[in-house]
Amino acid sequence: MRMHHHRTAHPARVRLALRLACTGLLLAALGALGALAPTTASAQARYTCRDDSGNTYTSFRACPQGMKTTSVSAGPTASEYRQERSPSRTLSTAPAADHQQYMSERCRSLKDTLRTAYSRNIKADTQEGMRREFERDCREEESEASSRYYREQREARQQRRDEDRQAQQAQQASQADEARHSQQCAESRRILTLKKARTDLSEGERSDLKRFEDAYMARCAR
């Protein structure tokens, strides 16, 4: 009968195999984490620009010539910028001035075009030419229109104050008339009461009393 002998693995070899297996698992895990880690992109600068009319907008490019850079800040990353659906520029347009209603159609149109130039993507050199034209042909007209508007505003305020004062005076006069009327009626009622209490009135005095009472009733009995 043959005897089978089983060989036992050497402990050092077992430990080496385990270390190699653990190292492989660790490297695989690190590789997976590296694949999941997001890539970073450099942030872009955001410029805030303002023109002579007070219009402002933001852009990821330097402000064009003729505009003032009011601030520069970090914007979104390049990848985020490419993914944006909306335009990078946001515009805040001031409303038309009230005095423009007194300007000519040409100057008013030129003023409105300058006011909304950036929302309409008008080039900087075109805007500069329009500004020169406005200064040459419309600046004095705008000054006169502004003076007229504020003069009429002052006159309207003064007229309202005068009307309010006249209304107050009329109310005070009406209240004074009411008070005077009440006093006169009270005095007439007192006299009428005294005369009615007399029993020695003559025929003529009774006739006078009757007329006095009729007048009192017509004036004071409300």
Rank of each mutant, 00 (worst) to 15 (best):
Arg132Lys: 15
Arg132Cys: 05
Arg132Gln: 09
Arg132Met: 08
Glu133Cys: 13
Glu133Arg: 12
Cys138Gln: 00
Cys138Lys: 09
Glu140Gly: 14
Glu140Pro: 09
Glu141Asn: 06
Glu141Thr: 05
Glu144Asp: 13
Glu144Pro: 00
Ser146Leu: 03
Ser147Pro: 07
Ser147Trp: 12
Tyr150Thr: 06
Tyr150Met: 00
Tyr150Ala: 04
Arg151Ser: 10
Arg154Ser: 06
Glu155His: 02
Glu155Ile: 11
Ala156Gln: 05
Arg157Cys: 05
Arg157Lys: 03
Arg161Lys: 07
Arg161Thr: 07
Asp162Pro: 04
Arg165Gln: 11
Gln166Arg: 04
Gln166Leu: 01
Gln166Cys: 05
Ala167Pro: 12
Ala167Val: 07
Gln169Asp: 00
Ala170Leu: 07
Gln172Leu: 03
Ala173Thr: 01
Ala176Pro: 13
Ala176His: 13
Asp177Phe: 11
Glu178Ala: 08
Ala179Ile: 05
Ala179Thr: 07
Ser182Asn: 11
Ala186Gln: 15
Glu187Trp: 14
Ser188Asp: 15
Arg190Asp: 06
Leu192Arg: 09
Leu194Met: 12
Lys196Gly: 15
Lys196Ala: 08
Lys196Phe: 06
Ala197Pro: 02
Arg198Gly: 07
Thr199Ser: 08
Asp200Leu: 06
Ser202His: 11
Ser202Asp: 01
Ser202Leu: 00
Gly204Ile: 04
Glu205Ile: 03
Glu205Met: 06
Arg206Pro: 02
Arg206Val: 01
Ser207Gly: 12
Ser207Phe: 08
Asp208His: 15
Lys210Thr: 09
Arg211Glu: 09
Arg211Thr: 09
Arg211Asp: 10
Phe212Arg: 14
Glu213Leu: 03
Glu213Gly: 13
Asp214Arg: 10
